[in-house]
Each structure stands twice: as structure tokens, then as C-alpha cells.
Design a protein around this nucleic acid. Structure first.
Lengths: 406, 406
DNA sequence: CATAATATGTTGGATAGCAGAACAATTCAG
DNA sequence: CTGAATTGTTCTGCTATCCAACATATTATG
């Protein structure tokens, strides 16, 4: 059996493409849903009972899922065993930031098993970030070898990243340029490694496990110390673009005669909307979004209200553009953008209702990010899982250290 | 053999999904390329020679393609017969505008066989547009029945259209609201009918047959009497959005304190960039983009240059946003936007080079639309073909008049 | 508490679609 | 005219799936 999916026959990984396809389908369903009975799997895939049986059996043998005793829920008929993602299959996640490198261990199913934040005194270079991550991973090594099957390392980097080759083209706040971080990380850890933009991965994580679960059109905006990052899920798939740099909503034009932005343009969202004036008004030196919100809620006043309104106005322009362009069902705001939104609930919704086209704005749900600080870990791990789940049997050909030239 | 593509098993149209998939693959390849030898088909699909043989045979029997004598090109070995789209399989295309309704006959392979522009004195209502089109089609009926197999009618409407149900939610320049045009057209003609936004269809047509052929990331902008429409191809697929209204780049924010737009917002591209001042400067009362360009080229002067620069500046802001968000490889400008661009070549490229992120702007090609006035016909027909090619065997279940309630 | 009804896992053919091998056809090179 | 190269054609075998019959486990019913 052979079904040529699109391009010159995918390098047949030993298995019939039909089988590979169906294996990937089932393992992805289980991974994304957490628990799914075999009966539900047959319904969702449309495959025959007997076929699902053999497929699940194969996945169990591969260590991707396991079957557990049916949770008798009072249904008539023979109970169907629960199929769950096998948490011993896992991926490592790395997220370099301005002031820290965070390393995580995420198991299949999207659960963060471990998270280590390594604070740095200075902004880490690419080499330093890789070394820190590699050292932490080396420390976990015996535990990993004993209890987990590590499928690879995923990196979430705040900047322009080419997912295909794992090169960071430019990460302005980290001052990285043309750093082949995936290759470096592979060499340092021995695991295959993939990298992508942090906000893109955040968007995917929110789509699969978070606020946008089940929705196919999601706009994700994250506000942090390193500016505003954006990721877009359009019609169920992450927007990548021709060279992989799509989704940079932080540089949407929002103001005529605005300030100069480091990107070369003027009037970018990122120059008008930032967290530093908020931290100042809150009387804080630094901290995370939660601390910021707490401090701001305590300190009320016209000055604060004006600043919040000003920033929300510019954010609203960006969202109005995004709604007209993407027609999303869900908008997810993370970091201090989520704080802004919750300080003045309804404001953004109101702006969209009057300014966006087609009167479809009423149906858009604006959420704060649901996954919190685990988001980047889950997103980065998903980078690895996605590739793994697409072909659970075939020999992985990630740009690992053992990979032959290409 | 069965491969569950994604959702609850596609309603098996009688045929094994694997076979259906491969048939669709081959017919699409032939449709998009025009001519393809059987040997090339085996290479592109990765399927076995023998399999391609049976598949092509089946498509010939279905009347989708035909094989013709090999064009001996001096290649060693047995010549491979050419496979071409069968032009007797065709679709009808309808494009209502402010001042006319255009009806076309487009055959498989994207060739416009016939095009009739029916000028109207007033802006047509939805009912009038449908009646005009139905009358023209009725006039062609005997010819159609004799020489063509019509697979359906596609409509390209300047406004927000829901492709799924063929309802025009709002077409401001036509003053249509919630018009179920697909259903109306089906009833009037007896053919299954589909409808979508004109610019979206233009983008698809340019992707498949025009300036963006082969590229997967394309931003299409069309400037006409009815404002500025946009369509985006992201990673090979048209951007649709949750309710099908994505791509409205004409309402990108480009100016603080700009004029009010009919959409409810201020400072939209469409309010700042329009063709009427250009026609005034050219001393024309009306006409198409070609006439406008000719007149403007004859009439030089600082006033004109200033207006062109002003409009290009705002267009540049929109493109800069679009480049940051979509990271496209191709930008296609149609209508008077194409004229603007060609009057001052290099201006937009320069703006993007300095203002867009990541230094990838150099690789972006900015084109004028290649397909000219046939564009909407081809795009609208493609709407029908796409559905037909996806399952050439299965009984079509378009919302035709014979379709049972749903 | 036994039996019926229902839903689901399991097993053994049957079928559809594709690959592969052997052979035939057609062209170019000398 | 012969050999090499390429591709169409035919036939056989394999694989993944579906289908039908049966087995199993639970709830509903008297």
C-alpha cells in the first residue's frame, strides 16, 4: 500500500505510508488528549475496531502509549480500556532568556516533570546558553537513562529562528546573530535538537494544551522583558512563512511619528507598549507578570489608568489588524499583556467590536495564557514530539551529531 | 486499504482513500502544470510506474485528462506520453462588481475559454447578479451541453464571504448583506455553486498559474473601484480563518488620526490609498488599470509624484506589517496598486529593506499580477476544480439544487 | 439473581491497492 | 544494424485494512 502524500514520496521509513499515517494519527490523538478509550479512538479515526486494536498494540510495543484498566463510568457494554501517553517517553526543553536559561523535562502528554531555572548574571551568549543547558542535562543524565527515553531537545528562542536548520538568525535582546544553536546543542548533548521562535512555540502549546485547545485559529501575543513576541495558528497549523520567521506581530505599525524601533522602522507596537513604565508605576524593580499584577492592583490612580488605557489602545490596533487578517476564534495574551488585559477587562473586546470587520469580533475569545511558566517548556518539547509522532517507527533523522552530511 | 486522514473518516466516496488520494494528486499535478509526461508523474509522485499507469488510465476514463503522442525531445529511451488536462471538463465563473457582472467559462488547466462582461447601469443586487449570470449561462447552455462537462459554478465576490456555506456576509461596495448567493445561483442554474472572496481567489489563481507559481507564501493585494482586497497564501494554503473572512489587508492601520472608514475604524489603508485621486490627476473619468497607467505616464509632474509617494508610503506600511507577519516570498500587486508600484519602481522594495525584520526582505519579489483580467475567472473556477479534483470519483455533494437538506 | 441488551475486544478470512520483476517497445548513439 | 537507455505493460506477491462472526464485560430488567 502506498499513498504519495504530496511531494516526491517521503523517504519510506521501512513502513507502509498508510500504516505510518494511522500510527501518527492515533499517537497524536492520545498525546493531545491525555486519555482516550480505544472505543473513542475508533470513533475519532473512523478506522475499524480491529485496525485500531493492532495499531494501539504496535504503539504499546513502541513505548509510546500504554493501556490501563477501563474506568467504568456506568456505560452499558464492555468497557473499553484507556489509552494514555507513555510518560517515560520524554523530551528536553531549553529556553534561553535575557537573565536566565531554563531547562525542562517534559513527558509525552505534555506534563512538565522537571524544570530548572539557571539565573545568569549577564545576558548569555549562544555558547554559554548551550553550555549551561548541556551541563544541567549531563547532571540529569543518569536519571534520564534510567527512567526515560529522551527523543530530543527542543529550544525556544526569543528571536528569528529557522526551524528547518535550527539557526537563530537574529535574537535582538540576546544579541545573537546567525547562531546554529540546534547543531551546537546536538553536539553538546548527543541528542537530536530542534529550535524555533519562543512565541511560535507558545502559540502551539496553547493550541494543544491550553487556552485555545481545540480551536484552529489562534493569535498568541507574549509580552516580556524582551519585547513582544507573536505566534499565529492559522487553520490548525502554525504560520511559518517562507524562511520560518512569520508571526512577528510585535512590530505591527501602530503610530504615525512613533519612536524608532531597533528593527529599523518606526511606530512599532513594541516601542509603544512595554512593561517598564508599568513596573515603574508599580514601584517595582523587576519581577514576573504575577508580581506586576499584584502590585498594580494595589496601586490604583489616574496616572496608572491613563497608562493602561494608552497601552491597551495600541495593543487594540494590533489586535484589530490581526483580527481582520486572520479572523481568529481565540486571542491569547501572555506576560504583561495578560496583566494589561485583566486590569481593564472588556476594553479590548470593545475596541474589536467597533473596529474589526464583519461583526465577527463578538465571537472572539480573549484569554490570558493558561499554561503559565510551563508554556515554553511544553512548546519546546512539542517541537520534538511533533517530529517524533509524525513517524514513530522510522529512524529519526534529526540533525543529531551522528547524522551524516547532507 | 484505508488511511484516516484526520477527522472522522471522510465519507468514503466508494473508493479506497489511498486511491482517491493518489488520483487527486495526479490530477492536480496535471491541472496545475498543463502538460506532464507520465515519466515525470512517476518521479513527482514517487509512485511506481505501473501504479501511475493504472491511475492515469482511470483519470482518462473519468474524462479528467487525456494522453497524447509523446513530444520526442531527443531523449534516450522509450518516449513517455504527455498527459494533459481534458479541456472539455470545465467550470463556470461569475464575478459581480460595482458596474458589471462578468461570466466566464474556464476549462481544466486554467484556460479561459470564454468571458462575457455584462455592464450594469446600477450596482447590481445579489438577485440581479444571479439572474444576469443565470441568463448568460442559459444562453450558453446548448454549447455547454454539447462540448463541455460543467463541474459547477464558482463566484468571486468583493466582500466577506463564507466559503463553507456560500453566504456573502457583507459586501460593502455592492451593499449586499447576508446573501446566500451560492444557494441562489445553484437554484437558478442547476449547477452546484461555491463562492468566496474575490481577492482570496485571486491569490490562489496567482499562486497556481501566475506570478507566484510554485511559491508557497504569497501576499496578494488588489486595488479597484471597490477598495483594496487582500488574499494570503501561507505555507501553500489559502488563509481562511475561523469563519472564512481572513485576509482583509485593506483595513490595516496605517495612520494615526486618519479618516473614518466604513468598517468602523480609522486610518485604514483603504481610506488613504485609493484610485480616485489618481484618476483625477490623470484627467480620466474612469477606466481600468491599463488606461490609468498610460494616462499617468504621459502626465508627469511634482504633484503626481507627491501623490504617488504618499500612497506608496501607506502601502509600504501595510506591506511591512505583512512581511513581518507572513514572511512571504512573493508579493503580488493588482489593479491600481500595480500601477502605483510600476510608476515608482524600487520604492516599495526600499521601504521593506529598511523597515522589515530579519533582513529577509531582499529575497521578496514584488510583482504585478500576471493573469490580468482573467484572474477572477480562473480563481472562481479553481474554487470548483479544487473540490472536484480532491475527489474526482466520489459523487459531488456540493450545495446544489438536488442536494438534500442538511 | 438470572437473563437480555449493549458495547467492545478478538480472530480469521477477503479485498483493494501498490511495489517489484520480467518482458516488450521505442528511441538515440555509434 | 546492434547495444544502451528509458519507459510502458503484465503478472505476482505483499500489506493494511475492512468485514463478519464470535467472545467478553458491563448495565438494565424482571
Amino acid at each position: 500500500m502506498m499513498s504519495a502524500t504530496a511531494r516526491p514520496a517521503a523517504p519510506a521509513g521501512d513502513l507502509d505510508p498508510s500504516r505510518r499515517n494511522n500510527l501518527a494519527l492515533i499517537s497524536s490523538l492520545v498525546h493531545h488528549h491525555g486519555v482516550l478509550s480505544r472505543a473513542e479512538l475508533t470513533k475519532r479515526t473512523g478506522l475499524n475496531r480491529s485496525t485500531v486494536g493492532t495499531l494501539v498494540g504496535q504503539l504499546v510495543a513502541l513505548g509510546l502509549v500504554y493501556e490501563s484498566a477501563p474506568t467504568g463510568e456506568g456505560q452499558v457494554g464492555r468497557p473499553s480500556p484507556d489509552v494514555r501517553p507513555d510518560p517515560s517517553t520524554a523530551a528536553l526543553a531549553v529556553n534561553p532568556e535575557v537573565d536566565a536559561v531554563t531547562i525542562g523535562l517534559v513527558s509525552l502528554g505534555g506534563k512538565v516533570q522537571k524544570k530548572i531555572r539557571f539565573a545568569t548574571e549577564r545576558i548569555p551568549t549562544a555558547k554559554e546558553a548551550v553550555n549551561i543547558a548541556a551541563a544541567v542535562i549531563a547532571g540529569m543524565r543518569s536519571e534520564l537513562d534510567a527512567s526515560y527515553r529522551i527523543t530530543g531537545v527542543g529550544m525556544a528562542v526569543p528571536g528569528l529562528v529557522n526551524r528547518a536548520d535550527g539557526v537563530v538568525r537574529h535574537a535582538p535582546h540576546l544579541a545573537w546573530r546567525n547562531e546554529p544553536v540546534a547543531r551546537m546543542m546536538s553536539k553538546a548533548t548527543g541528542y537530536p535538537c530542534l529550535a524555533d521562535n519562543d512565541a511560535s512555540l507558545g502559540a502551539e502549546a496553547e493550541l494543544i494544551f491550553g487556552a485555545g485547545a481545540g480551536r484552529g485559529n489562534l493569535v498568541y501575543l507574549n509580552g516580556g522583558a524582551s519585547g513582544i513576541g507573536g505566534g499565529v495558528i492559522a487553520d490548525g497549523a502554525l504560520l511559518r512563512g517562507s524562511t520560518g520567521y512569520a508571526g512577528e506581530l510585535g512590530h505591527t505599525f501602530v503610530r504615525t511619528d512613533g519612536k524608532d524601533c531597533h528593527c529599523g522602522a518606526t511606530g512599532c507596537l513594541e516601542t509603544e507598549v512595554s512593561q517598564s513604565p508599568l513596573f515603574e508605576l508599580a514601584g517595582l524593580e523587576g519581577g514576573d507578570a504575577g508580581q506586576l499584577e499584584e502590585a498594580l492592583r494595589a496601586k490604583d490612580g489616574p496616572e496608572l489608568a491613563a497608562e493602561v488605557a494608552r497601552q491597551l489602545g495600541f495593543l487594540g490596533i494590533t489586535l484589530r489588524n490581526a483580527v481582520n487578517i486572520f479572523n481568529p476564534d481565540t486571542i491569547v495574551l501572555d506576560g504583561f499583556l495578560g496583566v494589561l488585559h485583566s486590569l481593564s477587562p472588556g476594553t479590548l473586546e470593545g475596541l474589536l467590536r467597533t473596529q474589526a470587520l464583519g461583526g465577527t469580533a463578538d465571537k472572539i475569545r480573549i484569554h490570558r495564557a493558561a499554561l503559565g511558566s510551563d508554556l515554553m517548556m511544553i512548546g519546546a518539547a512539542e517541537l520534538v514530539f511533533a517530529r517524533f509522532l509524525a513517524d514513530p517507527v522510522g529512524i529519526r533523522e534529526l540533525p543529531g551529531p551522528a547524522a551524516k552530511g547532507r
